[in-house]
Amino acid sequence: MKRQAPELIPGTKLTGKWHGQTYRVIKKLGQGATGTVFLVESERGPLALKIGHENPSITSEVNVLQRFSKVQDVKLGPSLIETDDLKIGDESFAFYTMEYIRGAPFFSHINKYGKEWGSIFIVQLLGDLDRLHQASWVFGDLKPDNLLITSSPPRVRWFDVGGTTLMGRSIKEYTEFFDRGYWGLGDRKAEPSYDLFSVAMVMINIAYPHRFEKGQAEGLEILTERIEAHTWLRPYRKVLRTALLGRYTDAQLMKKDMMEIISETDSKKRFSSSTKNRMKQGKQFKKTEGKRGNVWDAMLAASFIILASVLYWVGQLM
């Protein structure tokens, strides 16, 4: 069962069995549960190539990507280019090529520019999810690892859509921390509220980059405790709770509530010009938030004004 996708060394040239296209491996981009993604050079320029451990899982992903492209009036995930097999000896490995999205990992952007960006990305994400849900799909394995941030303007994009499931079916691919079944807060039926639970967990993950386990207590209890203990999460407590309990049936509603809180907290901060307060809070919560210089704090405060305008434009564009 444990067949592994071949490790393709940079410089390797490979040719597809069916379509005869040749690709030159540039570097490895990442590794997922179902296979490995490489950056390759082709006739069409740079592409991302995913080669699978098991052929059926690659075929399922291709199915998803194909259906995706049909609803893609707005770009949700990378578009599929070609599917083929790579023959190595007797073995045949299914692979597909897709558009190469140049972007930074979700957390590297947040670590560099601050958690406040997290809220913006969540709002963008909710807009995308809404469109996906309208097309009768559920993302499934939603987590920062499956997201990318493209730059100028910063925008969240879906990187790995392998877990996307037709609404009404059961979710097969998930990551425990982001899965409501793991926290005892629902089943694994593909429905909008499943994704919205994961969105809430992505926010919690932004506050707690190392994640945490459920332990012995009730799932909701632990999550509530963690939300209350974190300054960045606390303003969103109501939205988070509603999402965790599966009471949002529509991404649009959660997005609206998020936007309201962001604009409220943002204007409060500006009106009271509470940079000092923030710094105090920063010290108080050093344990949970980790060390951060005062200069950094000041820079963040300054970026709120820019953020406010970004938000305005996000609102206009959605």
Binding site: W18, N55, P56, T59, V62, N63, Q66, T83, A94
Partner: peptide, 12 residues
């Protein structure tokens, strides 16, 4: 798996 990739999808 001997089918061309495009038809495999339908079987799956």
């Amino acid at each position: 798996e001997d089918l061309p990739p495009d038809q495999r999808g339908e079987v799956l």
